[in-house]
């Protein structure tokens, strides 16, 4: 009943999926991991970007191009979000606690309902030449859409990692995460830096949202499943670790894929949440933490 081939199949699919998970989580790795913003609405923005992609694709625009077009829009959206969050919570002192979390929870719900009101509750998907086809490698049959998502996700993760480690702004962002006061002494503006970083974290969701709707059909409440996946990846990675995000994404992807193969789809949604709970309980600093 259980074959080595089936397992290999699951592992390969899991690796492709895992890279995609890393791509949808990497924004959160910046906003929550580096900036300490309790961004529960991250997956809601992700799904919003998927619907944006869907909307543009109705005009015949390729989903990936649509994702790229959405990126600047989401970047600006992110700038605005951070400003609001900063003015409301961080500026008034450390008491964001309960209200900061509630704030993003509320935002997530508003986005969900806005999507329902605009697009309805039905599933939506996009058309593209690479969706629906598959390629055969050795004995494995791999959906082409996963391969496309894999490549774009890998590029996205790589570019963001390089940006944060090699460019001046990127390093400033990392510095602000460690010690905002020291940064202020060096003449940089920590608030502007954080706002910029939050913008980038939200901007990459443009492409991530396009990948999501390429990988699977979306519905307005899909963000709930991705709360588990994205937070699982970011926490497992160790807050703010970009290379860790990729590794954690791969681990989650393979785990989900194997459980899906062995036990069926009804158990799959719980995997990311169970792993998240386990990591939080046993090793809260993450597997690859700083």
């Amino acid at each position: 009943m259980f074959s080595f081939e089936l397992l290999l199949d699951a592992v390969v699919l899991g690796l492709l999926l895992g890279c995609f998970y890393a791509a949808v989580s990497i924004g959160l790795s910046v906003s929550f991991g580096l900036l300490d913003v309790p961004h529960v609405a991250h997956p809601a923005f992700l799904v919003l970007a998927s619907y944006g992609t869907y909307f543009l694709s109705e005009y015949g625009i390729d989903p990936i191009i649509a994702g790229l077009l959405l990126t600047p829009v989401f970047f600006v959206l992110g700038l605005g979000m951070y400003r609001l969050y900063y003015e409301t919570f961080e500026k008034r002192g450390s008491d964001a606690g309960v209200r900061g979390i509630a704030f993003f929870f509320g935002i997530a719900f508003i986005i969900e309902v806005a999507i329902i009101l605009l697009f309805g509750v039905d599933q939506r998907s996009v058309q593209a030449p690479y969706i629906g086809k598959s390629i055969d490698i050795l004995s494995l049959r791999i959906p082409l859409r996963l391969v496309v998502a894999f490549i774009v996700a890998l590029l996205l993760t790589l570019i963001l990692t390089l940006y944060l480690s090699r460019t001046f702004t990127g390093r400033t962002i990392r510095a602000v995460a460690q010690d905002a006061d020291a940064l202020r002494l060096m003449g940089a503006n920590p608030i502007a830096t954080k706002q910029w970083a939050f913008g980038i974290a939200t901007g990459v969701l443009g492409i991530a949202g396009a990948l999501l709707i390429i990988v699977q059909p979306v519905e307005p409440t899909l963000d709930r499943a991705y709360i588990g996946r994205t937070f699982c990846v970011v926490v497992m990675a160790g807050l703010g670790s970009m290379s860790g995000t990729l590794l954690a994404g791969l681990i989650l992807g393979v785990a989900e894929s194997i459980v899906l193969t062995l036990y069926g789809a009804s158990w799959a949604p719980a995997i990311s949440f169970a792993m998240l709970l386990a990591v939080l309980a046993v090793r809260p600093q993450g597997l690859f933490g700083r």
């Binding site: 309790p38 529960v40 709360i227 937070f231 158990w267 949604p269 719980a270 169970a274 939080l280 809260p284």
Partner: peptide, 26 residues
């Protein structure tokens, strides 16, 4: 859970718990 988790970590853990329980009921 509050022994090891505070703030947002606790909140996320409670979401996780609810999904896991729901999955068992399903």
């Amino acid at each position: 859970l509050t022994l090891r988790m505070h703030g947002i970590f606790f909140s996320i853990a409670t979401i996780a718990m609810s999904i896991i329980i729901e999955t068992f009921i399903i």
